[in-house]
Design a protein around this nucleic acid. Sequence first.
DNA 1: CCTCGTAAGCGTGCGTCGTACGCTTACGAC
DNA 2: GTCGTAAGCGTACGACGCACGCTTACGAGG
Lengths: 204, 204
Amino acid sequence: MPRPRSLTDTGIAAAALAVLDREGLDGLSMRTVAAELGVGTMSLYRYVTDRGQLEGLVIELVLDKVDLTVPARAPAAKRLTVLAERARQAVGEHLAVVPLLLTHRHLSVASRRWGEAVLGVLTDVGFTGKRRVIAFRALLSYLLGTLQTTYFGPLSGGGTAAMAELPVEDYPFLRDTARHAQRVTPDEEFHRGLEIVLRGLGLS
Amino acid sequence: MPRPRSLTDTGIAAAALAVLDREGLDGLSMRTVAAELGVGTMSLYRYVTDRGQLEGLVIELVLDKVDLTVPARAPAAKRLTVLAERARQAVGEHLAVVPLLLTHRHLSVASRRWGEAVLGVLTDVGFTGKRRVIAFRALLSYLLGTLQTTYFGPLSGGGTAAMAELPVEDYPFLRDTARHAQRVTPDEEFHRGLEIVLRGLGLS
DNA sequence: CCTCGTAAGCGTGCGTCGTACGCTTACGAC
DNA sequence: GTCGTAAGCGTACGACGCACGCTTACGAGG
């Protein structure tokens, strides 16, 4: 009976993501997203209760793209690597969502499904009880940690370059490490770091 | 000759930290910090070029407290654990600085010194070149990851409680894991997770 | 075809933020 | 006692999120 809705959740999320990709986190506001949708600022509030919920839609859109199917007969380490790498890749394609992901992860349904998939693998190879809690949180912490370090201080970024020029007498190790770091790709860093965690879990 | 300065960097940082502890990150503004110091808002700008620099002072204040001395003859795993745990504790006493730490870590001198100490241990047990880069970043990512997960979604928090009530048919593992998680203390989570990473590094 | 209830769309405005600008004022060397 | 210097701050501007209530488009019932 009443006037039909003209916007969809995913349309709103896509607009916000477009703004995010184009102008970064600072450029994301109710006003810019509304403009991106060709709509008045306050119209957005017909679809979203507040800015936080809009941010939630964005991370949902990004995380929904990660494929959770996994080669059934592959070793656990391989299956976990695949799940972690897909999540990292999905987020990596829209780096500006990292800060939003960190704050909204816990109430995202896509994130929960990812967690369920990871826990499925862990359970499959005998993790239960507290051990499973610890293993899961270790994996999650490593993943989120790498995401945020690549976002705020990538090895290829200015921070590392600056450290490479630190005075040798004060920071010999940091300086030398920074110099090697510039030749490590993000993929290599993530993959080999993940191998470390998996090896620590007794897998691989 | 001119009028003497009445504020110090550490005084400003301490005031900001007090506001942060009392009112959280949302309560931190140039106005509230100035008021905490008993000074006009714009007076702060005589000591700090912008809000970002003020945030930098806070994290410097917090990180300066971490003791970087380490038992010389202890095994590497023990030395790294001590360094990681001290950093975690220093930050844990002022949880509201976590978001600031994530954004300002790379240009903090205290953080650099901590990194230098960690790299010293790694070097001491034979890590060099790319391997040292990977090992360091893995440790750093894990540490930052746990900090941010405990800040945004602690195991003892509402997020975990909500997951414990998830429908069994959709999220069997997540639900069961969340139930066990509520009985894991933050210290236990961090310590055992760190053990995993260290074991993955071939230490311990 | 017309009416009218409903909800979409949005204009205005408030209180907050960071901070640019320039005035006033306290200090201490001469 | 004078005066150069920099400390201290009052005002104001353009963003922000969002509360409120008006206007307007729709489509089902008569």
